[in-house]
Design a protein around this nucleic acid. Structure first.
Lengths: 144, 144
DNA sequence: CGGAATCCTTTTGGATACTG
DNA sequence: CAGTATCCAAAAGGATTCCG
């Protein structure tokens, strides 16, 4: 199970300085994954995305798209018309994200019920703190 | 390309009320994915996780673990000893997340260079606003 | 050791108004 | 239409202290 020599010293994802960890954070926000889903079907306009992605604000969409463009995930094309028309599409790099992100969506859909059930169960249960657990258990041991 | 009838009315992931979208958000935070990676190797203690996951604070780790436990992803076992010993491990449900999350990590590692390059290129480029682009292009059209 | 509780700063994000 | 700018409220998160 010992892997061969790593190419880079920063390949330990647990290090804060690890680049792939930073890249991971690109997608770990509320909206990026949804934008990728939305653009999977092809080019979309700003207003289309705004409508399709329920709950996102103008500000957040704009910000998310800007970041994604900066990271090379989406391409923005501005048409010189009035009123302005701006179209967004996935770059080749962005398209490579569809697969892993879809895997996550499928996981969510498949295990949604289990998560919901776990949550209900957890919320129904009385939860004593770790201190209390330890304290009471230690006391039991001392008594016998 | 028309998909067959969906089972649930909430199966549109773009809706804010969509449950799978909410489930997606479970993982879309800074730390959950890293905790799953860390627990992939087996049971770990709180302090081990704190050490292994560089940059996480006690508070964040505690919070993340609590949420994950609530969602049925991790199991917590408290040992009645002083000082207390608490061990965390992935549940069966949590283990099913390893695969899709690993896919994301692999993506990050494979495309890290492209993202970095895109970022450098983007930051080197002068960016005029959409308004300016439209304005100047419209002006060009009017002149000829 | 494994937290919970408190305080306090930073960040996030919504609402609104404005622009070409 | 597709944003940007500003203001403001809420949330996130670090540091510290305390606890069994």
């Amino acid at each position: 199970m010992v892997t061969s020599n790593k190419k880079q010293p920063q390949s330990n994802i647990f290090l804060a300085t690890c680049t792939s960890r930073q890249v991971l954070h690109l997608i770990a926000d509320q909206w990026t994954a949804l934008v990728i889903y939305a653009l999977e079907g092809g080019t979309k306009r700003f207003s289309q995305l705004l409508t399709q992605i329920d709950g996102i604000s103008k500000k957040m969409l704009s910000q998310t798209l800007r970041d994604m463009e900066r990271n090379g995930l989406v391409q923005r094309v501005v048409y010189p018309v009035v009123p302005p028309r701006v179209e967004y599409s996935l770059t080749t790099l962005g398209q490579t994200l569809i697969e892993p992100i879809t895997a996550l969506r499928i996981w969510a859909e498949e295990h949604l019920d289990e998560v919901k059930e776990a949550r209900v169960k957890h919320d129904q249960t009385e939860h004593i703190s770790v201190q209390e657990q330890v304290a009471s258990l230690v006391q039991q041991r001392e008594q016998h």
